[in-house]
Amino acid sequence: MKQHSKELIEATANAIKDHFIPKNADEKSFSFHFTIPPSSNYKVSYEKDAKGKWSFVAFEADEGKD
C-alpha cells in the first residue's frame, strides 16, 4: 500500500468531513474511514475546540480493509 503524505490525507479528509460531523452538538470528537484510490485506506480523527471548530488531529493507515 502506498503511503500518502499527511498533507494529502488531511486535505482529503477535510474535503469530506462535513458528511461525518456528529449531529449531537455535545460531541467533542469523531473519526471516520476513507480510501484514496486505488486501495489506500485511512482512519482520521477530529476534535472540537473551545470555539466549536472541528480540527484534524490524527490519522492512521487502515490496512485491515481491502
Rank of each mutant, 00 (worst) to 15 (best):
F59Q: 00
P22G: 02
S40H: 07
V57K: 05
Q3D: 15
W54P: 03
Y42E: 02
N14Q: 05
N41S: 14
E7D: 11
K28W: 02
N41M: 01
E47M: 08
A25P: 15
Y42F: 05
T35K: 13
K65V: 13
H19V: 06
F30P: 11
P37N: 15
A61L: 07
L8W: 04
K65E: 13
D62C: 13
D18W: 01
E10S: 10
K43M: 10
K23A: 13
S29G: 05
T35A: 12
S39F: 08
D26W: 08
G64M: 14
I16F: 00
I9M: 00
K2W: 07
T35C: 10
S29I: 01
F56Y: 14
K48D: 00
A61N: 04
I36N: 04
M1C: 14
P22Q: 00
H19C: 10
V44Y: 06
T12A: 02
H4R: 15
F34A: 09
E60N: 11
F34W: 06
Y42K: 03
F20R: 07
N14K: 11
A50P: 09
N24C: 11
D26S: 15
F20D: 06
S55K: 11
S40Y: 03
K43A: 10
K17P: 01
E47A: 01
E27W: 07
S5C: 06
S39D: 12
F56I: 00
A61H: 00
S29E: 07
N41H: 14
A58N: 07
K17W: 01
F59G: 03
N14T: 09
K28Y: 04
Y46R: 03
A58Q: 08
L8I: 08
K6S: 07
H4I: 10
D26K: 14
F32W: 10
Y42R: 02
F20Q: 12
A58F: 00
H4C: 10
K51R: 09
E60Y: 11
H4E: 15
K28F: 03
G52Y: 02
E7C: 03
Y46T: 03
S31V: 03
D66K: 12
D49G: 14
D26R: 14
K28S: 11
H19R: 12
K48C: 02
N41K: 08
F20A: 06
E63P: 06
D26N: 15
F20T: 10
V57E: 06
F59P: 03
I21D: 05
N14V: 01
D66W: 00
F20V: 07
A11S: 12
F34G: 08
H33S: 14
H4D: 13
I9D: 00
F30N: 05
K17S: 05
K6C: 09
K2D: 09
K28I: 04
F30A: 10
N24W: 08
S45H: 12
D49R: 13
A15H: 11
P38R: 12
E47V: 00
K65I: 14
K53Y: 13
K53A: 13
F32V: 06
I21Q: 09
K65T: 12
F32Q: 07
K28E: 13
V44R: 04
I16R: 05
T35Q: 13
H4T: 07
E47L: 03
A50S: 15
S29V: 00
K17C: 06
A13T: 04
H19G: 10
K51H: 10
K43Y: 10
I16C: 06
N14C: 08
F20S: 09
A50C: 12
E7Y: 01
F59T: 00
E47G: 04
Q3E: 14
